[in-house]
Write a protein that binds this DNA or RNA. Structure first.
Length: 253
DNA sequence: ACCTCACTGGCTATCCCACC
DNA sequence: GGTGGGATAGCCAGTGAGGT
């Protein structure tokens, strides 16, 4: 899907992209190899071709940051497959405050294994671990998790390709918070954390910090783990629907 | 070759939303 | 409750197609 994206070129929007697809131009390669068939003016073609060449080069060197920088935010989800072998599902918990030191727990799920980082124990390890991933997936991460992480770790750019499932799911008609959407889609959580909210995470951290309540910390970590592991299910649910909604022609046969 | 009209994309302001 | 980016709507400017 990433290679069928044209709306990141200056002067081309969704309408032009749809026109290209309708004309059977379904990839950068197709556009570059058959320029005369493109339903675009010469001026627009001249704007488009350098962008497509740069896109091909970026994909070849697996530079997901290039796409984060150059794709419109509404099209970032299209990189899910191209960089699907290097995904970090990320979610943080805080103590309820808003400054850099408020981050208490960070969860990182790569699709197979979950790593949990805890303030006062191994939080700093997140900095080295996250750098290698090409694709970040969050729920409302643009507004919450990533700004917090950048404040907490100023040395961390976190400029990889980033799919924020919140606006993506909203475009699919799935409004409400993460838990509401999970519930609606029949995605389960373990009993231990069922019914918990972010405010409970604040409370559990306070129990751990003030009383060294190990059970509270364990429950907080289980909650964070459920958050990130369910993000994978949400992305898998959303992706084919986003493709269909984009107007990209369904494969025939 | 020029003019007009319609369409498209870009920009801005405002509102909305979900995070803990 | 503080935060800040996304969605949306409306307006403006640029462009292209078609007619004369």
């Amino acid at each position: 899907m990433i290679q069928a994206t044209f709306c990141h070129a200056q002067g081309l929007g969704q309408t032009s992209e749809q026109r290209l697809w309708d004309a059977g131009i379904l990839s950068w390669e197709a556009a570059l190899s058959t320029p005369s068939t493109l339903p675009l003016s010469d001026a627009k073609k001249q704007q488009l071709f350098p962008v497509l060449e740069a896109s091909q080069a970026a994909l070849e060197r697996r530079d997901s940051r290039w796409f984060q920088k150059n794709f419109p935010s509404s099209a970032l989800w299209r990189g899910a497959q191209a960089f699907g072998d290097s995904i970090a599902y990320v979610d943080i918990e805080t103590d309820g405050g808003y400054d850099a030191s408020s981050v208490t727990v960070i969860g990182l799920f790569d699709g197979f294994e979950t790593r949990l980082y805890v303030k006062g124990q191994n939080l700093e390890d997140f900095v080295t671990d996250i750098k290698d991933y090409k694709l970040l997936v969050t729920f409302f991460g643009t507004g919450f998790d990533l700004p917090f992480l950048r404040r907490r770790f100023p040395e961390l750019a976190l400029d990889q390709l980033h799919i924020d499932l919140c606006p993506a799911l909203r475009r699919l008609g799935q409004t409400g918070g993460l838990k509401a959407i999970e519930h609606r889609l029949g995605i389960q959580r373990v009993d231990e954390v069922e019914g918990m909210s972010g405010m409970d995470a604040v409370y559990l951290w306070a129990l751990w910090e003030r009383r060294r309540d190990k059970a509270a910390l364990e429950r907080l970590l289980a909650y964070n783990r459920a958050d990130i592991e369910n993000l994978k299910l949400l992305l898998e649910w959303a992706y084919p629907k986003l493709v269909a909604q984009s107007g990209f022609p369904a494969p025939t046969g």
